[in-house]
Write a protein that binds this DNA or RNA. Structure first.
Lengths: 194, 194
DNA sequence: GAAGGCATGTAAATCGTTACATGATTTA
DNA sequence: TAAATCATGTAACGATTTACATGCCTTC
């Protein structure tokens, strides 16, 4: 029988939530905004996940919510409990679990390149390259915010993670360009003629 | 009202299925094996997805299944229909849709590095590095098969996609090493003391 | 007073993994 | 004859997105 240890195991969404609360986010809305400006590219979450998960975390005693009607708006602010702190630290130092999932449609199209004419493969690679440029633009627009942390200005690692993203996209872009050139020059063959 | 064009839109799993059938896979089992040896790292699918999806694709007239009891085993072999070919080509040349999703737990831990002692951040990076090594080992064991195509030996692009995977993991590994060194040397600060 | 941001949530649908179940053939 | 591989499938659960709904406050 399968026994997930629900007393210590954090769901995917719970991991970002606890972390973001610990970094200074207060409300579900805060958390969503922080995610969208930072971890979104490697760990996203929607409102439909965040609000129910906050309730579940409160039931489990990992967070504590208090009504916080600043400016008359109905709002709930959350803080980590002792147990929540421990769960977060436990996850952060857990070297067992290592989720790494990728879903890359451009790469799948490339994988099926033998089914396409050379020009179509090249066009796909150019589209992928444009995608990299688009993401890089985004990332670079985040740089000023990330330099001083997305939530509080004592944070250094969000900026380093952004640096990772930028360098990754630059690497990917370069790979696309190089490969498209190799295919166009005829160095790499194509089964189907153009 | 939301109107996905179900007559032309392929579900995520349908995309690999049609492609793998076109490359020469015959049964659901074939498709699963091909995925596990190739696209798994950027486009995976389980039996629980593949078999029901094959039935749906047959209902939609994109594939055709025939009982094929080679060796006495109950088995269904599938081929693409004209409509299936068209749907596949349509998707392969569609530059509109571009799924790119990443779920990277190591990177999320790194993002929260300000909550950890320097030694723990370094340990996380070393774990990530070990993960890269592990994947690289896998990839390199696939190289001989990929050189001649995973299903038929006229295919070149599966090998190029594997090359991409190897180069990507090498890049990631180098980034981990470099960053761990920068942190260990004290070049990058840590909020929490060790 | 309209638009946009703040704030919280639900319902439906989709997507996906995991465990379970079955049974045949092939190989050691 | 036992283990591995071939082969197909379902049920339960978990995760996630999207659309919808509401209403306040602030700025133009």
């Amino acid at each position: 029988m399968y026994l997930p240890d629900m007393s210590t195991t954090l769901t995917p969404t719970a991991r970002v939530i606890l972390g973001m609360l610990r970094l200074g986010a207060q409300t579900g809305y805060d958390i969503k905004r922080a995610i969208d400006h930072s971890t979104r590219f490697f760990w996203s979450a929607s409102y439909g996940q965040i609000y129910p998960e906050l309730n579940r975390l409160e039931e489990r005693g990992l967070v504590e919510g208090r009504p916080d009607p600043r400016g008359g708006v109905k709002r709930t602010s959350y803080t980590l409990t002792k147990a929540g702190e421990q769960a977060l630290q436990g996850w952060l130092t857990d070297r067992e679990s290592y989720t790494f999932e990728l879903r890359d449609e451009g790469l799948l199209r490339f994988f099926f390149g033998d089914l396409l004419a050379r020009d179509d493969v090249v066009a796909n690679l150019r589209a992928r390259q444009a995608f990299c440029d688009y993401v890089l633009e985004h990332f670079r627009s985040f740089e000023p915010d990330a330099r001083t942390g997305f939530i509080e200005d004592t944070q250094r690692y969000p900026y380093l993670a952004l640096e990772y993203g930028i360098e990754f996209m630059e690497w990917m872009r370069a790979w696309c360009e190089r490969t498209a050139d190799r295919i166009e020059s005829g160095e790499l063959p194509s089964a189907k003629p153009s």
